[in-house]
Amino acid sequence: MSITHNQEGVFTIVSMAGRFDALCAREFKSVISLLLEADKKRIILDMAQVNFIDSSGMGALVGGLRGVAKEGGEIRIAGLIPEVHTIFELTRLHRIFDIYETTAAALAAG
């Protein structure tokens, strides 16, 4: 799992790659809190390179979303591969996230 981020206008694009499980959940949460400390509250998660996610990864996403929402920010999710999207539906968590096909679409949604 690797997590990098860069700024694109008002949005911070957080790019994740690899396997997103309990081992990486903590790292993800610390990246989100660092962004919030830097007052970067509009976040796009580019998950195109995430080839696996389990419920611990999903839990970290929900925790991240809650933290960001509390600060009045937002998280948009982009680029889910079909398998990963299935787990969003299985856990019914697709209902609480703004999910876009691509990072470009997430950016364009204003």
Partner: peptide, 19 residues
């Protein structure tokens, strides 16, 4: 069962396995 209504952060493991 997981608490779907509250969008819980954990408790999905066994549900996923059974599904």
């Amino acid at each position: 069962e997981p608490d779907f209504e509250d969008a819980a952060e954990c408790g999905y493991g066994l549900y996923i396995i059974r599904t």
